[in-house]
């Protein structure tokens, strides 16, 4: 369980988070909000990179103020927005092994973990490639594998599909789905409402450093989203126009329409 109580944070005296309460378990929560609303700042509190000015962050009962980021990284994995900011090893294998090694894992166990993590992101066989030689989607999946190999219970992903083409995006989305099936708690920061619709179980909306919505996806999409600089996916508009109601995928819409037309 990740628990956030009355979280306040300021950069150089300018308040960016204004008292946020939040809790999540093993579920997929989408964190949305316009640029500069404080999503990244909020997420950096969950693994202790930032410490609250006021309020508390508890990760499985551990107060982030009393633990180092390294200690917390065993429980909360944070996949940074730009994967290249973390690559420095010569091979994919060593890159993935870096995190577990920092946790003191060696030998057979290390090899197993790297193998497992690469398999989880569909990158078996890439072990001896150079991380810099990969495509955008592969880099993003490698970044996820690097964190996954540390076996955290929770994963935070900051805009993991931004800048990817459709196929690479699919490959990342599939990884997210299988991680969810494996029982990870996932906090997904994204601007892509289609992705929210497809993946999220719950949505948290931050606006101007305040949490303005926290609830199931269905309720989220009935908010006046344009007020927050967001827009509804076309799929939902179409479903509403045709009187189907709420659907998550094209297949669902088609199915519902077929039933209706019969």
């Amino acid at each position: 369980m990740i628990e956030v109580r009355n979280l306040h944070f300021a950069y150089d005296g300018r308040e960016v988070l204004k008292g946020i309460d939040f809790a999540m378990g093993r579920e997929l929560v989408a964190l949305v909000g316009p640029n500069g609303s404080g999503k990244t700042t909020f997420a950096k509190h969950l693994n202790g990179l930032l410490k609250p000015v006021k309020g508390k962050v508890l990760v499985d009962g551990m107060d982030t103020k009393e633990h180092t980021v390294a200690e917390l990284s065993r429980v909360v994995g944070y996949v940074f927005q730009n994967p290249e900011h973390m690559f420095f090893e010569e091979t994919v294998f060593d890159e993935v092994a870096f995190g577990p090694r920092n946790l003191g894992i060696e030998g057979e166990e290390l090899r197993k973990r790297v193998e497992w993590a690469l398999k989880a992101v569909n990158m078996k066989g890439y072990e001896s490639r150079s991380p810099y030689s990969l495509s955008g989607g592969e880099k993003q999946r490698l970044a996820i594998a690097c964190i996954l190999a540390m076996k955290p219970k929770y994963l935070i992903l900051d805009e993991p599909t931004t800048g990817l083409d459709a196929r690479s995006e699919r490959s990342v989305v599939n990884v997210l789905k299988s991680l969810r099936e494996m029982g990870h708690g996932i906090l997904l920061i994204t601007h892509d409402m289609g992705l929210v619709l497809e993946l999220a179980e719950r949505v948290v909306l931050i606006h101007g450093g305040e949490k303005v919505f926290d609830g199931p996806v269905t309720d989220f999409f009935s908010l006046p989203l344009t007020n927050y600089g967001l827009s509804k996916p076309e799929l939902l508009n179409l479903a509403e126009e045709t009187g189907v109601g709420f659907v998550r995928t094209v297949e669902e819409l088609v199915g519902a329409l077929e039933v209706k037309l019969r």
Binding site: K44, V69, G77, F80, H85, M86, N102, L103, C146
Partner: peptide, 16 residues
């Protein structure tokens, strides 16, 4: 700023 960001990314991988 970039260096700080990279350091944060590596800290998240247990780097100290």
């Amino acid at each position: 700023i970039l260096a700080n960001n990279i350091m944060d990314a590596q800290k998240s991988r247990g780097w100290e």
